Computed example of a mutant assay.
Amino acid sequence: MYEYGSDALDGDVDKVAFEEPVPYALELYSPWRGFGGGARVSSRHMPTRLRLKGRKRKLLDFDNQYHMLLVSRRFIDLVESLQKDIQVFPVQCVWGDGSDAGQFYFFFTTVLLDAVNRERTNANWVPTARGGLWQPRAGEIFSFDKDRMGDVHMWIDPHMPTKGPLVSEALFRRLQDADVRSFYDAPLFEEV
């Protein structure tokens, strides 16, 4: 019901890249692959204007365009209330007829963190030349180590670089309590 496409009116999404130096775990990926993040993103080539396709409607607080998170200021404020390690790029959205659709932001967490508790996790691990990747299947269990997470509430796991950001229980509850639109309930992974 809420999905919509867009045309970038400037920038070049295909050329959006991480700032140098790129962490080893992210060298094979771009920030727009799988709602990326995990390191600082260069503003070079980042679109600043989007023309939204489809009918006019109330836009969501948390959605995606071009495999990047497109969020409202309200979403940013909620995340920043727990964690400052984020990066945002303003995007002016317009409708097909040129009328204003509002100010939104491309959003990235800049935290790259392996917080998986391997003793309590039974998800599928696939060894690779670069170390390994988690390839979770339905019904498998992830557990995260709160000590390793520290004050981090949104991060990219270096062994799941295209799965999008992970969020702490505390941030998830805050987003739910605020009724952030499009942030739906998903199975929680245990934090220990």
Rank of each mutant, 00 (worst) to 15 (best):
G38V: 06
A123T: 09
R181H: 10
Y4E: 04
L78Y: 02
Y2E: 12
L59F: 05
G54N: 06
V22G: 08
A138M: 08
A170M: 09
R40P: 05
L133D: 10
Y29H: 14
V22E: 08
Q65M: 04
Y66T: 01
M68N: 03
D185R: 14
G34M: 05
L166K: 12
V88F: 00
M46R: 07
K163W: 13
G131C: 09
V91K: 02
V116M: 06
I156D: 01
D145L: 11
Q65F: 02
F89M: 08
C93N: 11
H67D: 12
R49D: 00
P187V: 07
W95Q: 04
A186S: 10
L78V: 12
E190G: 03
S6P: 01
G5T: 09
F35Q: 04
D151L: 04
D177Y: 02
T110V: 12
S43V: 02
K146Y: 02
E80T: 13
G38C: 09
P23Y: 13
F142I: 03
P127K: 11
R130A: 13
L188Y: 03
D100M: 00
W32C: 04
C93P: 01
I141M: 13
D61N: 14
D151N: 12
G34W: 03
P187T: 08
R55S: 11
R40Q: 14
N117M: 02
R173M: 06
K146M: 09
Y2S: 10
P90A: 08
F183A: 12
D100H: 12
